[in-house]
């Protein structure tokens, strides 16, 4: 019994950055914007959070700095894709390269130093869980949620009704960036209180997949991230104890992402995607 409880707690902990990042991405994508740059924004958030905490500021400030770093990167995405109308997918990819690069470069002086004042894991986990419930409420029971969803489904109609499509999309993208940044801060302040280059280990990409996997639904995202959390837990738990090579276990989450996406595709569930996902909106254009 204790074993199961322990496994679940660890899984929840592993799943926390995934849940935070994918909740942000759900809000962003519900407004019609795809931002594949989560991995890069997470790395920037992890570094910003660690750097601020390391300088002696309070952990609150560290988390805030992480969120702001994510927002800054997300606004860059908005600038490139909305003002300059660049392809959202490629922009996200570039943002990942840029985020990983800048974080690796500016983080070099911090590498290998421990944090004296580390954050607890559970407030992040609890916060992420509550946020999922709150987002569910906002999406389906408030006017703001309706506005967000209609901008993602049919921006032209939303525009006609007097909604500011561009503003909604910028705010949603920024929100996604903030949460990706906080997901990074969870890694560098609580989960493994330190900064190492590449510490996001592809979690950002798993979060991108998780959004599709959970059908853009915040409550299902809780289950989805718990599922991948269990997977990461098993990977550590089973190391050396079973006949399966370590490398196979390590590759498992990534391979499973593909399998899960294929299953979703086979069942035609990608119809849940917001109608205008990834499509830029210009007034008077179809």
């Amino acid at each position: 019994m204790d074993e199961i409880l322990n496994a679940l707690t660890r899984a929840a902990s592993f799943g926390t950055p995934l849940l935070l990042a994918s909740l942000g991405a759900i809000v962003c994508e519900r407004s019609g914007v795809v931002n594949l740059g989560i991995e890069g924004m997470m790395a920037l958030g992890a570094l910003a959070g660690f750097a601020v905490a390391y300088s002696g500021s309070s952990l609150w400030f560290a988390v805030l700095a992480a969120a702001l770093a994510g927002v800054a990167a997300a606004l860059l995405h908005a600038l490139v894709t909305m003002t300059f109308r660049a392809n959202q997918f490629i922009a996200g990819l570039a943002l990942t390269m840029l985020g990983l690069g800048v974080a690796g470069l500016l983080g070099k002086p911090y590498e290998g130093f421990p944090l004296s004042d580390t954050a607890l894991e559970w407030p992040f986990t609890l916060g992420a869980g509550l946020l999922a419930i709150a987002l569910y409420g906002v999406f389906f029971y408030t006017r703001a949620g309706l506005l967000l969803r209609s901008v993602g489904e049919n921006p032209a109609a939303a525009d006609v009704l007097g909604m500011n499509v561009a503003l909604v999309r910028v705010l949603a993208t920024a929100f996604g960036g903030a949460l990706a940044g906080i997901a990074g801060a969870f890694l560098s302040l609580a989960y493994r209180p330190s900064w190492t280059d590449g510490m996001t280990v592809g979690l950002g990409w798993v979060a991108v997949a998780l959004v599709i996997f959970t059908g853009w639904h915040p409550l299902k995202a809780v289950l989805g991230s718990l599922f991948f959390g269990v997977l990461y837990y098993l990977q550590f738990r089973l190391q050396g104890s079973v006949a399966v090579p370590t490398e196979v276990l390590a590759a498992l989450p990534y391979i499973l992402v593909i399998v899960v996406l294929a299953v979703i595709g086979a069942r035609g569930q990608q119809g849940n995607a917001p109608e205008s996902l990834g499509r830029p909106y210009r007034r008077g254009e179809r």
């Binding site: 890069g40 860059l76 600038l79 490139v80 300059f84 660049a86 392809n87 490629i90 922009a91 990819l93 570039a94 943002l95 990942t96 390269m97 840029l98 985020g99 990983l100 690069g101 800048v102 974080a103 690796g104 470069l105 280059d197």
Partner: peptide, 16 residues
């Protein structure tokens, strides 16, 4: 990692 900075910035500037 500076190479990734180059790659990311160049790709962003090109698509923009």
């Amino acid at each position: 990692r500076i190479v990734d900075v180059f790659s990311g910035v160049m790709l962003l500037c090109l698509i923009a």
